[in-house]
């Protein structure tokens, strides 16, 4: 469904070049959920943004659904994938109601039956009709993230890109959103890429996981192997150990 080969992203900063992503390659099969984990600055979000076409990148191949996505994309091609961002407080327009927010992508893509589609999208993500004319500040963090997910799915894209969708949320709300994502993934047979710094979250939701460090993919492992620690790289082992909590050195 998605093929990434030798993807590199370079930023220019006051005359210096920063190589944020260096030669990253992977494939995502239809219906698969692919995870990318890494620490801050590892380039994980940058990979996602390059695939979405939000930032410029260079690669020997970047294909989505069999078509090259390396060039300027048509409206039709952009509709194939939608993005959910980390911070639901920052990714929804504060002066638009939920209704406005959900209507906009439909209008841009010239889709009919606005009213029906908006109310279906609201029901889909577990919000009730009373939320439809509220502003983001009148919703909780979890409800806002539901709106962001509804906005991404209202165009019925086959691919969903998720950039740390639950890291701004409390554990109990995170559980609700993760459950919602697995339910929607099943009902719409979505292909998705999930970026997170939380190994527990990626192991829960993903089939395969790429571990990134300093702009490179260190290795790609199956979720089951990650759980039992059957990994080949020292860095991955270090990440697993660190995420299991603090260990007091025995003295």
């Amino acid at each position: 469904m998605i093929t990434v080969k030798d993807l590199s992203v370079t930023f220019q900063n006051s005359g210096r070049s920063i190589h944020a992503v260096r030669g990253v390659s992977f494939d995502v099969a239809p219906g698969e959920t692919f995870g990318i984990v890494g620490e801050s600055g590892s380039g994980k979000s940058t990979v996602l943004k390059a695939i979405a076409g939000i930032i410029a990148s260079s690669s020997s191949a970047l294909e989505v659904d069999g078509r090259s996505a390396a060039k300027r994309r048509s409206r039709e091609e952009r509709r194939l994938m939608q993005f959910v961002f980390q911070d639901p407080y920052a990714s929804l327009h504060p002066r638009q109601t939920v209704d406005d927010i959900l209507r906009e992508p439909l209008i841009i893509h010239g889709i009919a039956n606005l009213d029906e589609k908006v109310s279906a999208a609201i029901a889909d993500v577990g919000l009730s009709p009373q939320h439809r004319f509220r502003y983001p500040h009148q919703l909780s963090g979890g409800q806002r993230q539901r709106v962001a997910i509804a906005r991404a799915l209202i165009l019925r894209p086959p691919i969903l890109l998720l950039d740390e969708p639950t890291s701004a949320l409390d554990v109990s709300v995170q559980a609700e959103i993760l459950n919602l994502l697995s339910k929607l993934r099943r009902s719409y047979s979505l292909t998705s890429i999930l970026v997170s710094h939380d190994l527990g979250v990626v192991a829960h939701l993903c089939n395969r996981i790429a571990i990134m460090q300093l702009g490179r993919v260190v290795e790609v492992v199956r979720a089951g192997d990650l759980r039992v620690g059957a990994v080949s790289q020292a860095y991955t082992r270090e990440l697993i150990a660190a995420s299991r909590g603090f260990t007091r050195a025995v003295t």
């Binding site: 554990v171 109990s172 995170q174 559980a175 993760l178 939380d198 190994l199 527990g200 979250v201 192991a203 829960h204 939701l205 089951g224 990650l226 759980r227 697993i240 995420s243 299991r244």
Partner: peptide
């Protein structure tokens, strides 16, 4: 509620 590495 917390997704864990140990339990699926």
């Amino acid at each position: 509620a917390a997704p864990s590495l140990d339990v699926q």
